[in-house]
Amino acid sequence: MSQEIQSRASNEVLQEIIRSIDLLRFGSIEITVHDGRVTQIERREKVRFNNDIQKQKAANNTVAA
């Protein structure tokens, strides 16, 4: 593989990793490598709910009504 193709592929992989990080608020990114090359990037996002905030909003809505 020529240096130019390797460099371009590496840039594409790096751009995808950066994009995955930018899109992620809470979670993880898994990078799979085979024979020294990135073959897969997985992004897992967590959605969390804070019950205290939800209870506070509910209480505020009850008072306002």
Results as ranks from 00 to 15, higher is better:
V38P: 12
I53Y: 01
D35H: 13
K55D: 09
F49C: 05
K46H: 14
N60H: 10
N60P: 03
N50G: 03
Q3N: 12
E16Y: 02
A58F: 05
A65F: 00
N11T: 03
A58D: 06
Q40S: 03
A65S: 00
I41G: 02
T39I: 15
S10D: 06
Q56K: 11
V63K: 06
R8F: 14
D22T: 08
I31A: 09
R37W: 15
I41T: 04
E30Q: 13
E30K: 13
R43W: 12
R43F: 09
D52M: 02
E45F: 00
Q6N: 06
Q54N: 08
N60C: 08
V33Y: 13
V38S: 12
E30F: 08
A59M: 04
G36E: 11
R25I: 10
T39Y: 15
R48M: 10
T62I: 09
T39Q: 15
S20W: 06
L24D: 02
Q40I: 00
R48H: 08
A58R: 03
A9F: 06
I31G: 04
K57W: 02
S10C: 01
A9R: 12
R44Q: 12
E16S: 04
A65K: 03
T32V: 10
R25M: 09
T62V: 07
N60M: 13
L24G: 02
N51P: 00
H34N: 15
K57G: 00
S2E: 08
D22Q: 09
V33E: 12
E30A: 11
A64H: 06
E30C: 09
N60S: 10
V47C: 10
R25P: 02
V63Q: 05
E42D: 15
D52C: 01
N61S: 05
S7P: 06
E12Y: 00
I17P: 08
Q54C: 04
S28G: 11
R48Q: 11
A65T: 00
I21M: 09
Q40T: 02
E30G: 07
V13S: 07
I17K: 08
D22W: 01
